[in-house]
Design a binder for these strands. Sequence first.
DNA 1: TCTTAAATGTAAAGTATCTTACAAAAGGAA
DNA 2: TTCCTTTTGTAAGATACTTTACATTTAAGA
Lengths: 226, 226
Amino acid sequence: MAIQSKTAFLEHFPLFETLNSDEKLRLTQMVEVKVKPRYSYIYLPGEASDKIFFLSKGTVKIGTHSKDGKEIIKSVLHPTAMFGEMGIVGEEERQDFARAMGQEVHYCVLKVEDFKRLMRSNHQLSIKILMLIGERLRRAENRLESLIFKDARTRIIDFLKDAADQRGRRVGFEMLVKHSLTQQDIANLTGTSRQTVTSVLNELRKSNLIYFNRKSILIRDMESLV
Amino acid sequence: MAIQSKTAFLEHFPLFETLNSDEKLRLTQMVEVKVKPRYSYIYLPGEASDKIFFLSKGTVKIGTHSKDGKEIIKSVLHPTAMFGEMGIVGEEERQDFARAMGQEVHYCVLKVEDFKRLMRSNHQLSIKILMLIGERLRRAENRLESLIFKDARTRIIDFLKDAADQRGRRVGFEMLVKHSLTQQDIANLTGTSRQTVTSVLNELRKSNLIYFNRKSILIRDMESLV
DNA sequence: TCTTAAATGTAAAGTATCTTACAAAAGGAA
DNA sequence: TTCCTTTTGTAAGATACTTTACATTTAAGA
């Protein structure tokens, strides 16, 4: 890939705003652009955590499997997200997998080592990373709380609200969320079973609070969804 | 408190190893030493997250309460630990409380703003903080996994093992853990009920895998505790 | 020492949620 | 279109754990 397009590539990531042109040049020199087919793994548990990634196209899920095959989805990422960043904060070996969802993914990769060098020269960047990891930590702790304090139904509804807040498109009073999640995925995101997700969603549809099909969910009224 | 004793105070924290003597002086000037009685709160949800703390004596628990009064203990801290560090990573307002456990606590406080200035001048320090937050994130995610993948009994046993690993004293083949936790505390740490903790502990005692009283737990054989 | 509150022990009942099981629908491939 | 796989729908057990309830023990204070 040509330098110019790499540069264009990087312009999209707010993380790199603070870089001066020299730093940007260095960055383009150390970055590698990649494309992978849908359903492919970008990394797997056990691999070295020596790279970080920036998603430019497609959807990626981060998660783990238990010994008996259960899955937790830790996050679902969309373009402009950074992932694999545990390598920057001391992880030696991946605990999670990163997997392309139902579309081809485009992303760029760089070595943790290189990135750390960049951080050393640009304190702003270090701070941004710190804030980002902090945000991650807050998210993980909130999820912990919801898992302990709330029942399955509430967690599923919270998921719907979050999805609408983060990625919903307002349509009148309604909120439309397009996604690429199966109900099994939603279960793995909320720590519930697939059947529970099905029945909660159908119950909400019966009460006319939401409408949904395989590709999207429409929340009729965010307020009344409790 | 005199400058010398503040300096001595700070020597104990590995975080500050990398500071040069000038930076150490600056640090002593911005730090404030405090003592609080047992059971008192160091901070509460809703307060500004504008300070960070370093524990030098006593035990502190960090946690949250749900609306209906349930408690999650996020961590139990011992001397030399930093806490309240969410303020460094962008939290505006405390979500958690920090509370002294059954002993008087000694700690020092400094303003997030001051600390951030110090981080700007010492990149090593920034990196250490980043690693620390990373470690926290890893812990939170592991806990999430254990909550979803493992049953109550296993989580309680995992707690015993962790406690032994982190703070146990080897006594022959056995491991002695002195603590200041009630069984309710253990429940709040593992996301279980007090009664479940009681019955699991008693069952383990009956099987002669552990012995315990209010102040300590003796693990007879770490291997066989599964 | 006595009194009281807190912590622990024990048991039974209740219940939210998972499992198991199977059927129906939807989507992709040939 | 037809075939086959994946996803979704529905229902009835099974069950791990919480809740409720109360008794017993321990520690702390007066």
